[in-house]
Nucleic acid binder design. Sequence first.
DNA 1: ATGACGGATCTAATCCGA
Length: 266
Amino acid sequence: MSFSLATWNINSVRLRIGLIEDFLNTHKVDVLCLQEIKCQNDQFPTKAFQKMGYEHVAVHGQKGYHGVATVSKHPILESHSKDYCEMGDSRHICTTHNFGDEKIDLHNFYVPAGGDEADPKTNPKFDHKLKFLDEMRQLKSVTSGKNSVLVGDLNIAPLENDVWSHKQLLKVVSHTPIETETLTEILDGGDWRDLIRQHVPADEKLFTWWSYRSRDWKVNDRGRRLDHIWSAPGIAKSLQKIEVIREARDWVKPSDHVPVIARFKL
DNA sequence: ATGACGGATCTAATCCGA
């Protein structure tokens, strides 16, 4: 038995449905978790996913901004969303899937970016990000005996080799100590495993996002690892491999994030 | 210089991303 999932901040699902089709045709996965779909529920291209065999769809969209969706080839047994910080943003959806003989909860997150200034007193967006993270401390990798997986754009690059220059990004939102320490506390406190770093050693640079603002993203390779796949210890044991689809950053009209795949052997 | 592009929206100029 096997199980595979991918996470991808798509930066508009309607604009990039063609890229998603190309991706799913070349990289077979059971479940795809999308962030920043930037559309309302009724604008989600459900039919396109159904044509590709992803008949089970859970969407939590909103107009213009944010929005998350999880699509699956196999049944989604349940789904719900939590309104973190009670701001009405669509930044979370949890779906329940069969994983071999067991059931798992799959949390799909789009954590707030946090704005420019890394000071919660002067920057409300950074304050929102920190409060959102504080609420995430409640997430445990095992609840009532059920194992969980947590994926998404967490908008934090926690380790030194998750950014192109640790020194130069220490004051840049996404890699400040308050953010990286809090994310580590959520990880450890919930007994989560960082599956991407379980597969790729922490002394290797690894990125999943490169800014649109650079003329050529490859020249200096100034990226960050903002997208994550975490799981309960019991699931981490069956991880077979992680694939970061770096070439997706070079596709026509790309997202600024690339897909990350986790494959499990059960 | 990190670097100045790219998405959605009240289709023009503005907000937002990180």
